[in-house]
Amino acid sequence: MRNAVLLKIGGMRLVLAQADVRSLESVMDIDPADCPQGSVGWAPYAGQRWPAYCLGEGLLLLEPIPAARRVCALLALPQGYLGVLCDEARTLVDFQEASFEIPACMYVAQSPISGLRMVEEGLACVSDAGRLSAYLQQTSVVHNAEVL
């Protein structure tokens, strides 16, 4: 058992280990100038700036930022941080690992979701910073190609 953080993104709930979420910042601090493809801006943290991404409840990149996204969760990666915008974030104490695997017929290789778990509010998707980072990099490339 360990603590986890529940991010509410529209009607979707995303759970990450607490160790993966380094800080919760305000969306107001995000600077949209010259941001990387697919991101909505730069989130300042630890004297540097890090790309921040806005996702819809289907986990697809979303622009512009909906008014409900008020929090930027900074996820810790070996090479730095990345921001994921959410409506709310709260700690889950003594959270247990995903209790359900993704059913085989629903499996998509690129998905950052490693499992599913019931929480107070309903079903939550379980992921981690590494999977989300890989997914966002890949999705940003596709997103950029579609925009061009």
Binding site: P103, M106, S111, L116
Partner: peptide
């Protein structure tokens, strides 16, 4: 319960007697 990033024909699950279906 809708699960993101799943195939169009298999977007939902339901909980039945503690099983995810």
């Amino acid at each position: 319960h809708a699960v993101p990033l799943t195939p169009d024909h298999a977007r939902h699950v339901l909980i039945w007697q503690k099983h995810l279906v």
